[in-house]
Amino acid sequence: MTQRRRGRPSLSQNTSRLQGGDMDMEEDVSFTQTLTQAQRNLEKHSPEQISLKVGELVQYLLIRDQKKLPIKRADIVKNVVKEYKDIYAELLLRAKKALLEVFGFQLEEIDTKAHIYILINTLERGEGDDLKVNDNTAKLGLLTVILSLIFMKGNTAKEVAIWETLRRLRVDPGERHEDFGDVKKLVTDEFVKQKYLEYNKVPHTDPPEYEFRWGPRAIKETSKLKILEFVSKIQQKDPKSWVTQYRDAQEIPRSQAPRASTSARS
């Protein structure tokens, strides 16, 4: 096991976060460490034990990803890390490295305050990549339609408008669907839990109206430009013909700025 002597960015970030929210205070104390403290903690455990823990952590992350549910740091500590809490940062770093190296999966933080993670793919889907097709594939189709409607209509869409269009596709919130079952639940609950969509009440509306926005997972897994390309393909038009949307899709959000070192994997 190589002992890394250089400063670890994740740890130094933690030390500066001591002024975090009150709820985090107690948690943060164990996550904020000086470099020497971290070193000493590592040495408390044997290399085999650490290796085993990293393996378990990777398993845990893959299991949580089964249902595409975001992963909370608190759960990671409670269910996997447990008494190895003092080296949490190192464990997570190694798990992240393993996921990237072996599977090509990137562990992304979608909520830096509450420390919530998802897995996204570093490999681009190409022609001939015959992935298994199942119910989740159908659900993705539905989700993409909704994301398209939201984006093309200016990044927010009223719930009633969404259902109006979906009805044309034989998808009705009042009826049980062949592929989706309880569609209303799928769209307003499952997709929201998975962080694909945000479902918010429009203030000062009575009876209450709701609107949809893209969720943080959608922002990471796809992009405005990609969805514009999808719409363009379906409608057989040039993406540039949607002038407003095309311009909107050109703004690169900070979270999606291209990472320089994607290919340089040591």
Partner: peptide, 12 residues
Amino acid sequence: LGTEAEKYFKRT
């Protein structure tokens, strides 16, 4: 539709 949509996502 979903199979086509997969191409536009970085899903694992």
